[in-house]
């Protein structure tokens, strides 16, 4: 139905839904994340028989649509998870969504990496600085990131070598990435 819209990024869709009051863009965004929303909500639906999917999902979508018009959204996935958790936790109260500082740092770096993809000089610079930040990271985190990202090892490989569970491994990876991002940003300020 909306071939052009499905190819757009989340950011573009959100801005369209907001500025042009384009309900189609909003719908495409909801459609894009609907399966994740369903998957995330499934355990709640199974555990709580009072919840009716015919009521839960429409009201969830309504809440998402309402907050889409007012909130600052950096990452659609984080925002959707926040709203979903808020709805299932305290249905009567809608807590506003504030992206964390770390989240914004991460987003900033992601954007710079994205931009540098087309500029060789920027890219070289970025690679050098990221390498420096990686050198400063502690040995465990450095090893984890190097194995996971640079040596293309899967979760299964890493859990096998480290003996950690997949959740813990993921948390560690995430934390290491956060630290790396922080180091990179501080480096940027020093520079």
């Amino acid at each position: 139905m909306h071939q052009q819209l499905t190819n757009l990024s989340d950011k573009e869709l959100i801005s369209r839904a907001r500025k042009q009051k384009d309900r189609e863009a909003e719908g495409v965004l909801m459609d894009r994340y609907s399966h994740l929303l369903v998957a995330v909500t499934l355990p709640h639906l199974n555990n709580n028989p009072n919840l009716d999917p015919n009521v839960v999902f429409p009201s969830l979508l309504q809440r998402l649509s309402a907050s889409l018009k007012t909130q600052t959204i950096y990452k659609a996935n984080e925002w959707i998870l926040h709203i979903q958790k808020g709805y299932l936790g305290k249905p009567e109260k809608s807590t506003p969504f504030y992206p964390s500082r770390d989240g914004r740092d991460l987003l900033h770096i992601e954007n710079t990496v994205d931009k540098a993809a087309t500029n060789i000089i920027d890219r070289e610079d970025l690679i050098v600085r990221l390498g420096q930040a990686l050198q400063r990271l502690n040995a465990d985190d450095n090893a984890l990131i190097t194995q996971f990202y640079l040596e293309n090892k899967t979760f299964a490989d890493l859990t096998a070598t480290t003996g950690l569970s997949r959740e813990k491994l993921r948390d560690q990876l995430k934390a290491a990435k956060g630290k790396l991002a922080k180091l990179f940003m501080n480096q940027g300020y020093v520079k």
């Binding site: 994740l36 199974n46 999917p53 996971f148 995430k174």
Partner: peptide
């Protein structure tokens, strides 16, 4: 998955629930 809580939570939920029929249907 390391970055996205939503996707990781979804994955975990699907793993816990087992069958994907309900997931497909509801989706």
């Amino acid at each position: 998955l390391t970055d996205c809580d939503l996707c990781f939570n979804a994955l975990q939920a699907l793993e816990q629930e087992g069958g994907t029929e309900k997931y497909q249907d509801l989706t």
